[in-house]
Amino acid sequence: MKSSTPTAPDAGPVVRYGPDPLLRRPGALLREMATDLLRSRELAWRLFVRDVSARYRQSILGYVWAFLPPIAATATFVFLRSTGVFSMGETAIPYAAFALIGMVLWQTFVDAMQYPLRSLTAAKPMLTKINFPREAILLAALGEVLFNFIIRLVLLVAVFLWFQISPPATAWLFPFGVVAIIALGYMIGILLAPLGMLYQDVGQGLTLLTTFWLFVTPVLYPAPQAGLATVLNHWNPVSPLVTTSRDWLTTGPSEHLGGFLGVFGVTVVLLLAGWTLYRLALPHLIARMGG
């Protein structure tokens, strides 16, 4: 009798742990990734429900906190712009609406970038003590990012009603824009997570970078047409995503579509690479975390 065809009624799966690089057996690795992803759905849902329901339980304002940051940022910029501290190009829709939509998209990008590392850090005690499908943490984090966006969607609807903007025919493409923005942030987040679990510098650096990044991205101002800002804008992967999504939702077809598709394609490839890296790295990281 061979162990590959177990005859004992309760013979379970046979697992073998060793030092050999998992990449040398890519077939098995991909199979495991796929099964674990499927296996982790239910747990991911549980973790997502746990985190979301615990998040605002000790708070009076509750979900209002999800709206406040973009509103605060927008209000600041509306004020600064009205005082003429700095000048910017004209926007096709009222500036407040333009900025608020931009901030909602930007916040979603930042969430997607920061949640993987944040969730993994919070899950350290579990990771070091229980063997569960590791994808669950990432999926739960993704769920939270989506959830946050859906809450902020309420804000967008309010903006459209308040400023009486009628969405163009391209508005139905907007969800794809959001997906691309989340994918990009999430990809960066996952790629940085392994290093971030070892060195806190990554998390700190990411926060700092985010602030800086906001100001070189046409979120609170329209895409620049000339000067140094144009160059920065050209190499900034978030720019075409934010600009295209906002255009789709408010004005119509975007001239940045080419950039959008390019960034999205690269994102998907790197996302798979990041996921693989995460799986390969985790046992090594757990060995370094102790506990």
Binding site: P13, V15, Y17, P19, N131, I286, A287
Partner: peptide
């Protein structure tokens, strides 16, 4: 044995569903 970390050398084979009460 629980598969949380991997051996640096040597092998571990586990046959069946593993439950662990570590925490």
């Amino acid at each position: 044995l629980n598969g949380l970390i991997r051996p640096d050398t040597g092998y571990i084979t586990m046959r069946g569903r593993v439950g662990a009460l570590i925490a």
